[in-house]
Design a protein around this nucleic acid. Structure first.
Length: 661
RNA sequence: GCUGCCGUAGCUCAGUGGUAGAGCACGUCAUUGGUAAUGACGAGGUCGAAAGUUCAAUCCUUUUCGGCAGCACCA
């Protein structure tokens, strides 16, 4: 007599063992039709699976995020997979999980397929979906299912079975699989190894979907393994939601910094300098404002700025360990004489070894600690070409880097100080949507467990105290210490690591960063690698996408455009510009940044251009303004503030810039 | 680096086995117009690069460089 508790707290009693399907039917015909799976005591299962004991249950429909996931999974694992097997009998299926906007399936094709092949796959899927075919869960002896997949040629499935057996991930010593009853693929019924749950019947799959693209992906995420073809499905509960998703993607593309950068004349890339932006005056202005802002923060938080060489002899990197562990990414500069290499230097791939050199200059005492050395350090890394991505992943970049040299006991306070600095900076820059990953000790590591305990605890305490959203990333720390990574999102939600904090007891030891402790002994110090914005380039990219190129006034490359209505007002416009630039407003580049549009275009056109350039203020000056000594102020959102004396405008802008709003 | 795709004027894109076209931007001239595009005329490319096939290639083949999506990488 199972008594089942529904989400609203009500209870229903059933005679003997029941199933999700029966429960749904007992509640209502509509729900019975819409049901795709059921959650029993927190565990998802098929509607056909028995429910014998008291439990709290929740019936899933495509309207629940979890229900949607189930249907997406059925769509990819049952329908896409079958369509592939039908059209490409020699294809070998691997795995097909769901993702945020749909699902994908990794498949090994005998001959490569291209995106031109997707429409016919999609068409076949739509045909399959019209079939009234039950999808049934079955428990197989691992051996038997292995034999089945040996026949269908699905060796990846066999490997998955072997893996499940080895790890003991079995259900009563059996593996669960799903049979599409009555389907015929290469002469046999379609059976897929799967944990489930699945919809009970293909006709329950009512998603709006499209096969969006192909990509390569390695088997089990290891580049040593065979590369499979990944087919992406974007799938939503309704056509409306799919359309909305596609529309949103198209909108997001307009915010792509790789589009906005050149369009707003901020920077460009060109083939003969891959992965390195050419900053134009406007983009560099934003960059300068940002670094100016950071300098003030750093000095307020007790950092001292330094600058170190960009080209360094290999001996330093041999000592630091980078030569052995990071060689692939080094840009080497060979010194030659009479055709012979006589010495090798490397472009600086990171700043830490150089910062240690500054620390090491002179004898340090515990009284000198913590010592915080900051540098806007430009680095060059020979990144894999496929990894490059606009400003987000570049070859040449500048980190707002710093290294904190401290004692073990100062770790926690320094981690805290860093988190509060970062939180302050991100808040000032308008970022609230970010989170932190705490990466802890990996399997291969050096150092004592006590030190790992201490370092991990320090980082955890720091994020907690700062009240930042964080999650654990177990085992992903560096071999020498744990780290915090601060993750921001771009316009389409891709995540990018920006800020970082890494505990490193290793490098001070390797490079002899010693201090004299209270007892008079020379001992290695602790080192914290940290960056707030990460790379200025990446941060600029993220920032551009987040503000859609509409920089707040303090960052805007041109803060106000003066628009004379006729060239009769050009002289007055020049007067206005002189007044604005001569005002007491201070920016990183001097005074207020203004421009006069003296083109022979009509005012409407000048406004359009200023609008497209996303200039915060348009100051229209016509005959009336020239006579009254005013400017007619228009904002880039279209608001017309009307005419005001120049002094009033200055006050407004001055306040806005000072408050960075 | 790997898989698939792409590379034509500054930008967005069309086009063809017989040496390229539009819109915007740019220049000149006319227009002096009140809050999202005034008009006319003109000047721009040898079709990413190299090699090959061909009587002939921007269009076919190969290589290479760069880019896009994803994977791997980001100590």
């Amino acid at each position: 007599m199972p008594r089942l508790t529904l989400p609203d707290g009500s209870m229903r009693e059933y005679n003997g063992t029941t199933t999700g399907a029966e429960v749904a039917a007992s509640i209502g015909a509509g729900l019975a039709k819409a049901a795709v799976a059921i959650v029993v005591d927190g565990k998802q299962q098929d509607l056909s699976e028995p429910i014998a004991k008291d439990a709290s249950i929740r019936i899933l429909t495509v309207k629940d995020p979890e229900g949607l996931e189930v249907v997406r999974h059925s769509l990819t694992a049952q329908v896409l997979a079958r369509a592939v097997k039908e059209l490409y009998p020699t294809a070998r299926l691997a795995i097909g999980p769901t993702i945020d906007d749909g699902a994908y399936y990794d498949i090994a094709f005998a001959a490569p397929i291209s995106s031109d092949d997707l429409p016919k796959l999609e068409a076949r899927m739509k045909e399959i979906l019209t079939e009234d075919k039950a999808v049934m869960r079955e428990l197989w002896e691992p051996e038997d299912l292995n034999k089945h997949f040996a026949k269908t040629g699905d060796d990846f499935k066999q490997r998955l079975i072997d893996g499940a057996v080895a790890k003991g991930e079995l259900v009563n010593d059996k593996v669960s699989a799903y049979r599409q009853v009555g389907s015929r693929v290469n002469g046999v019924e379609f059976v897929d190894l799967c944990r489930g749950p699945h919809v009970p019947n293909l006709k329950n799959i009512t998603l709006a979907f499209t096969l969006s693209n192909l990509a390569g992906a390695y088997w089990q995420g290891n580049s040593e393994n065979e590369q499979l073809t990944r087919i992406y499905v974007r799938a939503f509960a309704t056509q409306k939601e799919l359309d909305a998703y596609l529309f949103m993607r198209a909108e997001a593309e307009k915010r792509d910094h790789r589009k906005l950068g050149p369009a707003l004349d901020l920077f460009h890339f060109q083939d003969n300098a891959p992965g390195q932006p050419f900053w134009h005056p406007k983009g560099w202005t934003v960059y300068l404002e940002l670094t100016h802002f950071m300098r003030k923060k750093l000095s307020a938080h007790g950092y001292q700025e330094i600058n170190t060489p960009k080209l360094v002899h290999k001996s330093l990197y041999e000592a630091s360990g980078h030569w052995a562990n990071y060689f692939e990414d080094l840009f080497l500069v060979k010194e030659e004489k009479e055709g012979k290499v006589i010495d090798i230097y490397s472009l600086k791939p990171m700043n830490c070894p150089c910062h240690v050199q500054v620390f090491n200059h002179g004898i340090k005492s515990y009284r000198d600690l913590p010592l915080r050395l900051a540098e806007f350090g430009s680095c060059m890394r020979n990144e894999a070409r496929g990894a490059l991505h606009g400003l987000m992943r570049v070859i040449g970049f500048t980190q707002d880097d710093a290294h904190i040299f401290c004692t073990e006991d100062q770790l926690q306070a320094e981690a805290l100080g860093f988190c509060s600095l970062l939180k302050e900076v991100y808040a000032d820059l308008g970022f609230t949507d970010y989170y932190v990953r705490l990466s802890t000790r990996p399997e291969k590591r050096i150092g004592t467990e006590e030190l790992w305990d201490k370092a991990e605890a320090a980082l955890e305490a720091a994020v907690k105290a700062a009240g930042i959203d964080w999650k654990l990333n177990p085992g992903d720390g560096a071999f020498y210490g744990p780290k915090l990574d601060f993750v921001l999102r771009d316009s389409i939600g891709r995540e990018w690591q920006c800020g970082t904090l890494q505990v490193d007891p290793n490098m001070p030891t390797r490079l002899g960063a010693l201090y004299t402790n209270e007892a008079g002994a020379r001992v290695p110090c602790m080192m914290l690698h940290r960056a707030v914005l990460g790379s200025l380039e990446r941060f600029m990219g993220i920032y551009i996408e987040n503000c859609e190129g509409k920089f707040p006034t303090w960052l805007a490359p041109i803060q106000a455009v003066i628009i004379p209505i006729t060239d009769g007002q050009n002289a007055y416009a020049a007067e206005v510009q002189a007044l604005l630039q001569g005002s007491s407003i201070v920016t990183a580049t001097g005074g207020l940044r203004t421009e006069i549009d003296t083109s022979s275009e009509r005012m409407q056109k000048k406004i359009l251009v200023a609008q497209q350039q996303k200039v915060p203020y348009m100051l229209v000056v016509g005959k009336a303004e020239a006579e009254a000594g005013t400017v007619a102020v228009r904002l880039r959102d279209g608001t017309d503030l009307g005419a005001m004396p120049i002094g009033v405008f200055l006050q407004r802008v001055g306040l806005e810039i000072a408050s960075r709003s």
